[in-house]
Structures are given as structure tokens and as C-alpha cells.
């Protein structure tokens, strides 16, 4: 059974421990600007929204990569292979969720890879706003549902439909 990150903005306090854990695991330092997960702060609505890749089924980023540098592993995770990534950035504009980003210091793209199966953001979250759970047990979250519906042309009711 595939596991997925479940994000509940209602539980987020905006502490950014997830961003620090992510940057530590992936960059070897505390650097929230390089985190793969970002907490959006909607101050006037008293709402914090952690946001990262949903590992959508028919991944735009993967389809858009011209050199097969993004693949799906056995856990359903879309992984960027640094040795193949040429830094063309097509995936960064192709992902409609904006969760693949260019890292100018390496000349390659970065995205959430669920830390190889033990996502540091979920472990670091003090309020369980981010949890790593069986995807089917908890149901697909809203974004993932959105993602699967909007694959190129396969689902006529998705947001891809002309207004």
C-alpha cells in the first residue's frame, strides 16, 4: 500500500520545523529557502498552509522531462535523478502545482522525494499537521484528487476543462 503525506492546514501553527527538517536532510544545513516544503502564512485569515509535492499519479513533471530524469519509484514517489537532469526547467513550468523548483546553485531541479520513505517534515511536525500515512486508508487529499483529475485530457470534469 502506498503511503502519502497528509497535510491538514487546520493543525499548522506556522513554526517552520518542517522546512528546517527538509533543508537539513536535503541540503545539510538549516535553510528554509531551500526547503521542498513551504508553509504559506495567511496572516489575516489566521491560517497556515504547508505545501509540497503530492506525488500525483500522472505526474506532469515526469511527462515533461525530456531526458527521463524524473521517474516513479516503487513507492510511487517521483524522483529527480541528478545525474540525468540537465537543468532545462521544463518540469518547473509543467508542474501546475509549482512544486518542482530550480536550484541555481546546482543547476538542477529539486522536488520532494519523501526522503526515501521517511519524510523528515512529518517527523518534525509538532502538531501532526503533516503526517505520513497509508494513502488509501485516509483517502486522497484534496490536492491529490485534483492532480489525478487534471491529467492531460483523461477526465472531462477536471479544471482543465474550458470554463
Amino acid at each position: 500500500m502506498l503511503k502519502a503525506l497528509q497535510i491538514d492546514p487546520g493543525k499548522c501553527t506556522g513554526c517552520k520545523q518542517c522546512e528546517m527538517a527538509c533543508s537539513y536532510v536535503n541540503e545539510g544545513e538549516f535553510n528554509v529557502s531551500k526547503s521542498r516544503i513551504r508553509v504559506f502564512d495567511f496572516h489575516e485569515d489566521a491560517r497556515f498552509v504547508p505545501y509540497t509535492c503530492t506525488q500525483c499519479d500522472e505526474a506532469w513533471c515526469q511527462q515533461a522531462c525530456p531526458v527521463n530524469a524524473i521517474t516513479t519509484n516503487e513507492m510511487g514517489v517521483k524522483v529527480v535523478h541528478d545525474n540525468l537532469c540537465v537543468g532545462c526547467k521544463v518540469c518547473t513550468i509543467a508542474c501546475p502545482f509549482g512544486t518542482v523548483n530550480y536550484n541555481a546553485s546546482t543547476g538542477k531541479v529539486i522536488k520532494c522525494d519523501l526522503c526515501g520513505g521517511d519524510p523528515a517534515c512529518a517527523s518534525a511536525c509538532p502538531t501532526d499537521a503533516i503526517t505520513f500515512r497509508d494513502a488509501e486508508q485516509s483517502g486522497f487529499d484534496k490536492m491529490k484528487e485534483w492532480a489525478t483529475k487534471t491529467t492531460a485530457g483523461t477526465e472531462p470534469t477536471g479544471p482543465n476543462a474550458p470554463a
Partner: peptide, 9 residues
């Protein structure tokens, strides 16, 4: 470059 795909979204 940050989150630029959201424009497509």
C-alpha cells in the same frame, strides 16, 4: 523561478 508552475496551474 520559485513555484513558477503555479502560473500554469
Amino acid at each position: 523561478t520559485e513555484n513558477v508552475g503555479m502560473l500554469r496551474g
